[in-house]
Design a protein around this nucleic acid. Structure first.
Lengths: 233, 233, 233, 233
DNA sequence: CATGAATGAGTGTTCATTCAT
DNA sequence: CATGAATGAACACTCATTCAT
């Protein structure tokens, strides 16, 4: 990483090549795989096609990923589960109200995941989970559990600080998750099948949901929010 | 086809079986197909398995449905699109406030579709639409268009009667659709992957959503509902 | 087989077709598979080629045999293990000296197995056992165990009747097996690589081996046979 | 690449390594290849695995051996055919009876080949010969022909000296070969599939066979050995 | 009307061999 | 000299669809 300032006239090239090599091929393969998995689903995606789109042969793909399933796992790690550490860090260092933190989480998620191809993964998992149990359990362990835990941490922080009223955190987590999921589904399925006239502005949508959520979570001041009283079961 | 005019002492039995068969065989096939399509998706469902579950041979299946795609279409017609006529009739004859009508629609949908296997079809379509364009366009024509039209009729009735404030009906339709979709997805995907501790009571959920919707659609009386002001773009 | 002489004017055809159908396809496949497995070994044999030689498509092969391994097992059952019942029966009914019985066994084996393609199976197993453990254990259970048991029965009969001297039956079995094995190997490997000038007359060879064996097994009369005293450990 | 003309204080090490390498690398590769070929057969052995076991990369293997077949030939030369010159020399210099010479040959073979991994090669060739005709013809030329010639020389010497009676040398050679082959097969196939209770002591077995052979070859003194009269065709 | 035998194009995966570095 | 990334032909197995009976 940190190369000594002198005498490195031959190394940079080699180093650069190495580090690019080790990253470049898998990187292109992962990008191609993400695109195709999101577009066609896991089962319907052909490994030949992934390889071809990445500009390599099918054999090369299996040089980097021992199977189609492992390729998929790598895609998920690269795009989602590998980022939880960073996100947890950000939350640890976050300095502000939990309301702001929740807003930050949602918009940040949209910026880094929701608005990218990666948001197609949840839809994909929803469809294929039944047919590929190992992928399902992988997804639960590497995405849903840490994701839910992260949201729960935020909610607990809010309750601890008195910003949010006490709640059943399991439900709370799903209340936060629902709009993200809806947005992802809209982007990759629903939105594509109703004409372009039905635009859904993600920022506005998230803002509205956030508003409802935090008003629902907030300590009641003058009057309770009746419509969330029985929001989830 | 050509039944002899007399001497049918052996035929009655056969006739009875026939006329029953004309319904029975396809019926069992459609039921088996619905189950399997919902459980495994369109592509992953094997026609052998459908036939086997229906107790007939694979050849017989192709006797009634010329292809797997046509079988799927028949399943959709049988369970969803074939019922719009009846539903439209009910709406025509409905005597009451539009608020009640909307409630009736949602709960009725839950009773007759949402709580049955048929609610798996939207999830299924969401996943497979990209890979089977013909099915997608069929679904749009036979399900989404009449479904949306039906909801739009309700909304227009409410606006016309002064119960609901004027709105962009395209958005309105999706606001009504969203909770139904969420419930269907929960039932067939999300709900199955979070433990049984996260129960979602469909009636309560629909009631809450209905409450929000109608309050949002209602004419403002004392104060506007700010959180829906920018609900959808 | 033996059809009643009257009133079977429509059935014979159908019966014949049926019984041929159920037997014909698998039969041709089994014959083709035996030939190719013996010629090229299990791993090197291509299922396409088996199907092609049997005059059917690859798909048809998998209609009858769920996998290449099961095809191989069926070949072994058809040609070897399925015949032990009959052979055991013949031994039960055999009326004569054990010396004659042993001669009958060896020559009978040559007539029905050794001289046919089936004698290639032992060579084949010897080569592939390491790479296909499941086939190896199948072969042990379905061929070697009953085969050894059959030989042991003969030897025990000889000892019981006083014809043979007491012996360690485990060794005895291998002493009988060795010439059969050698003959099979010769036929399928060794014999094919030395020119046609080195003919090995199976009947003469078996007769000679039998002679040695039975003299070795026989109760010593005037003088022991020294060369077998330490023949096998 | 470009070695400086002087100042080679670092090179000796490298030179030493090189000159050792010229032997070491191929040597390790040949050893690894022998093990794996014998264990799994020619076709089932992966060149990656050979290279890995020898501690080099796959590319390096192809640096020393232009193909898998050439690697196999080198293994055979290293372990068998390369030694015929030496063996022939020993026979030339042998001073003693032909009976002793034959005993020496068999036991020597067991010591230097039969008891080592190299004895797996005949089994291997027996299996793969059909699928790799070039290897088969190589083996015939480089192993079987000189091997048979060597045995024939011994037999001719015995006949010439009057120790052995006149014979058809082609058959005689196979009579000598058979027990060696049987021992090799037992070691690498048969012996491994019958439990450890069936031990075959190679020295005893060879001694017994040798006894039979030489008594069979010997000039009849007091009485003929009837059981070998028609031993081989 | 109902069957089930037959098909063949298509899929994920393997592996000997090449070659730029 | 040594590497390891890249290839592509090959192989076992699947499955929607057809059709003679």
């Amino acid at each position: 990483m940190t190369t000594p300032p002198s005498k490195n006239f031959t190394l940079p090239d080699q180093q650069a090549r190495r580090s690019r090599r080790k990253e470049a091929r898998p990187g292109e393969l992962l990008a191609a795989a993400l695109d195709l998995f999101v577009e066609k689903g896991f089962a319907a995606t052909r490994v030949d096609e992934v390889a071809q789109r990445a500009g390599v042969s099918k054999g090369t793909l299996f040089l980097y990923f021992p199977s189609k399933e492992e390729l998929f796992k790598a895609v998920v790690r690269e795009n989602i589960s590998g980022r939880f550490a960073e996100w947890n860090d950000e939350i640890d260092r976050f300095d502000g109200s939990t309301h702001d933190m929740l807003r930050y989480c949602l918009f940040n998620w949209w910026e880094r995941v929701g608005s990218t191809q990666a948001s197609g993964i949840p839809k994909l998992m929803m469809s294929e989970a039944q047919n590929f149990p190992e992928l399902a359990s992988f997804y639960r362990q590497e995405v849903m559990q840490p994701g839910n835990a992260l949201i729960e941490r935020v909610l607990r922080r809010g309750v601890a600080s008195g910003e949010f009223r006490p709640m059943d955190f399991t439900y709370g987590v799903y209340l936060v998750l629902a709009p993200m999921l809806f947005l992802a589904l809209w982007k990759h399925s629903l939105g594509t099948c109703c004409g372009d006239d039905v635009q859904l502005d993600p920022h506005k949508y998230l803002a509205a949901q956030l508003d409802m959520l935090t008003h629902g979570f907030n300590q009641p001041k003058n009057h309770p929010n009746p419509s969330l009283e029985h929001a989830l079961p």
